[in-house]
Structure formats: structure tokens, C-alpha cells
Computed example of a mutant assay.
Amino acid sequence: MTTGTKIRLLREQKGWGQDVLAAELGISQPAISKLESDQNKLSWDNAVKLGELFEVDPEYFFETKVFNHNTNTGEGNQVISPQTYHESDIELLKSIYEDHLKTKNELLEERYERIVELKKQVEELKAELANLKKV
């Protein structure tokens, strides 16, 4: 995924327009557009600012061609080609993300309901125990 795509996806997740991000960085909206379309390279200073805004490591924005891979052979630091993504891939990734988010929320709701059930059972057992102690 390119630097520009990463910036665009994070910006869209926040629901911000390019103008909002530009104001946060203190640069123009056309400069944001050029960053997102990879026409301009991201400076380290802006990467740090973006990292703070989006709560990610600034290095996230830069393509990594070195992959630290340790296997039983002991090989490491293998150079690999960066993967490129197309618009259809991005839409698929967004869809997958939204599905996972929905599933997570459903699981949390189920767990909450189960906790309520278990608390009710604990109270019933306490009451039953209290009745047994009276006998």
C-alpha cells in the first residue's frame, strides 16, 4: 500500500475532508491531494504529525522493503517487493474491516447478555443458599 493510500484511508476513517487534514498539518489542500496521489513525497516532520493525529507510528507511512523473516534456516532481512493495491482492493479491505467490526460488536453484545444472565444466576443461587441456611 502506498504512502498516499495509507494517508487517505486514515483520513477517511476519521471522516475528515482533505481540507481538515490540511489545516491540522498546516499545509494546503492541494498539497494533501498530491500526497494522497503520491505525486509528492511525505516529509518526516509531516509523518510525525500524521502519526500523532492518527495514533500510528510515523514509519507506518513509508514503504518497507525489508522484511525481518526468521525461519528455522536462520535467514533474516530478506528484501521483498512492496505490494501494490488497486481501488478494488481498497474497497474489499474496507468491506472486510466493516464486517469484522460488525462481528466484534455482535460478540460484545452476546457477551454482555451472557454476563447479565450469569449475574442473575448468581443472585438466585445466593438466595437459594440463604434459604438453605435458614432450614
Rank of each mutant, 00 (worst) to 15 (best):
K119P: 05
L50N: 00
P58C: 11
Y112P: 01
Y60N: 06
T103W: 06
Y112F: 14
R114T: 12
L53C: 07
Q78K: 15
Q18V: 00
T64N: 15
R114W: 11
K94Q: 02
F54A: 02
A130M: 08
E106T: 05
K94N: 04
N40R: 07
V79H: 12
E52G: 03
I115V: 15
L93M: 12
R11S: 06
L118K: 00
N68D: 12
L21M: 07
L42N: 05
P58S: 04
L9H: 00
E98K: 07
N40I: 13
N131L: 14
W44G: 10
I90P: 08
E128N: 09
K6N: 07
P58W: 12
D45V: 05
G51R: 08
T103R: 04
S43V: 01
L129Q: 12
D99G: 08
F61L: 05
K49E: 13
L35V: 04
Y85T: 05
G26W: 02
K6T: 01
E109G: 02
K134Y: 11
L9T: 09
W44E: 13
L42P: 01
E109S: 12
P58Y: 02
K134F: 01
E87C: 02
L118H: 06
A31D: 06
F67R: 15
E52N: 08
D38T: 08
I96A: 13
S37I: 08
L118N: 10
K102Y: 00
Q83P: 03
I32H: 01
I96M: 14
I7K: 01
A31I: 01
A130R: 12
A31M: 10
S88N: 03
I80F: 08
S95R: 06
E52I: 13
V66M: 12
P58D: 00
K6W: 08
V135E: 14
L107V: 11
R111Q: 07
K120I: 09
L25V: 04
Q18R: 09
N68F: 11
Q13G: 03
L125M: 11
G74Q: 08
K119A: 12
I96Q: 04
N131I: 12
N68K: 15
S43F: 02
R114M: 11
E123T: 11
S81H: 09
V20C: 05
S33W: 13
F67V: 13
V56M: 13
T84A: 12
E109Y: 11
E55G: 11
E113Q: 13
M1V: 10
D99I: 10
Q78I: 15
M1N: 09
K104M: 10
L10D: 04
Y97S: 14
E59T: 15
S33H: 13
I27V: 04
Q39T: 06
A127M: 11
G17P: 04
E98R: 09
V79N: 05
L10S: 02
A130L: 01
P58F: 07
V66H: 06
V20N: 03
E63W: 07
R111I: 05
L101G: 01
Q13C: 03
E24P: 02
I80T: 07
T5E: 15
D89I: 01
L107S: 04
V79A: 13
N72V: 14
E117C: 07
V79Y: 12
G26N: 00
T73W: 11
L50G: 03
K102V: 04
N72Y: 14
E63M: 08
D19C: 02
G74H: 05
K133E: 10
D99H: 10
M1E: 10
Q121M: 13
L93W: 14
E117F: 11
K34D: 02
L132Q: 14
K41T: 00
